[in-house]
Design a protein around this nucleic acid. Structure first.
Lengths: 200, 200
DNA sequence: CAGCGTATCGAATGAGCATTCGAAGTTCGA
DNA sequence: TCGAACTTCGAATGCTCATTCGATACGCTG
């Protein structure tokens, strides 16, 4: 069962193999669904025996948790880092949405899994961290929208509705984005921001 | 196996029981997930034996198909009916989004299942009808957005991006809407439309 | 190169599940 | 009321799957 090597020389390989497994799992879960994917299939994708996965993960659900953590942790961290840059509200919003869309696009398999398995994540103590991160991120966006409004860059009948709309459009991007598509992540983000920013 | 009674007197009961099963399945699939829900549990929810469900449905997947059909068929039908009303573009859009949000809210369990099982629906011949309906609906919205733009009610850098944004925000509504919430479906719809309509 | 921490294997285990089906019960229509 | 159509039952079937575990192989480190 999941034991990180004590010997430093072995950690790099351990961490790399573990990350590869998460990446492959995200890809396969996104395509076939979490429940429809057996540990056997996952192991085949990686070219190892099924039992070997249990050296890196306590069980199948740990893979799911790892996928969600890989998705939310860096997103929240980057969004929080942006807070310190002291940008004016409208520019801050644009920068945040760009960063966010880029993250969604970069991790679209993670996103698809996250959305598909919403019902699992909503309940269960092992998911508390993921839920907390998501709430913190949404809170951060909401506060920024308030500042955008205060600065006169927009006027919403209902700010929380504007927040939900933004969450919906950005997260939905994972469902249709293709790397070979017409628009790059920045253009997509700007298109969204243009819908949200208009002088009062 | 699924045989609709020939005797008219029995059809009403058959149709009702079948519809109840679909409704209950949508509720439970939305909460626990399709794969995590056993036919046994579904049967218990309905107060019947597991085997009895097979009198109404050929198999578990038929329940899923029925849920998606119940979701898409009436939505597409209502949206198409609206086309005949000859409304000017901006009003037409508002009417369509109101109808659409109301439908999503009314069938939010169906929507959640539809979204969660996206990967199943994307492939497989038995899902062609559902896929066709969704495409037809999206096409209809896209054409309407074009008319809105032509009429000078909005100007999008990229119309398909505006379409994706609208799809994202409306469909996302199923994830947060609560009947006891602050906003009613019309107010939600109007909030979305306000983001999309602005003079060029 | 010896030995321990590490990594992988792969067969075995046991649980859960969708589906089947023959029997028993129920309801309608004549 | 009788027979046929319809409905429900629930135990049996056979499969898939997550997980375990003892054995084996590998590779640092001293």
């Amino acid at each position: 069962m999941a034991t990180r090597p004590t010997r430093p020389a072995l950690r790099e390989r351990y961490d790399r193999r573990r990350a590869e497994a998460i990446e492959a799992a995200a890809r396969t879960f996104a395509r076939r669904g979490y429940d429809q994917t057996s540990m056997q299939q996952l192991a085949e994708d990686l070219g190892v025996a099924a039992g070997s996965l249990y050296h890196y993960f306590g069980g199948k659900e740990h893979l799911l948790i790892a996928i969600c953590d890989e998705l939310m942790d860096p997103l929240l961290a980057r969004a929080q880092a942006l807070e310190g840059d002291g940008l004016p509200p409208a520019e801050h919003l644009r920068a945040l949405v760009r960063l966010w869309v880029a993250h969604v696009v970069e991790h679209r398999n993670h996103m698809l899994v996250f959305q598909q398995e919403r019902h699992v994540i909503e309940s269960g103590a092992q998911w508390k961290g993921v839920r907390t991160d998501r709430k913190a991120f949404e809170r951060l966006v909401e506060d920024l929208l308030a500042r955008v409004e205060d600065a006169g860059h927009a006027r919403y009948d209902d700010r929380r509705l504007a927040l939900s709309a933004l969450l919906g459009m950005v997260n939905h991007t994972a469902q249709w984005y293709r790397p070979s598509g017409r628009l790059d992540p920045s253009a997509i983000a700007d298109g969204y921001v243009d819908l949200l920013l208009r002088p009062a």
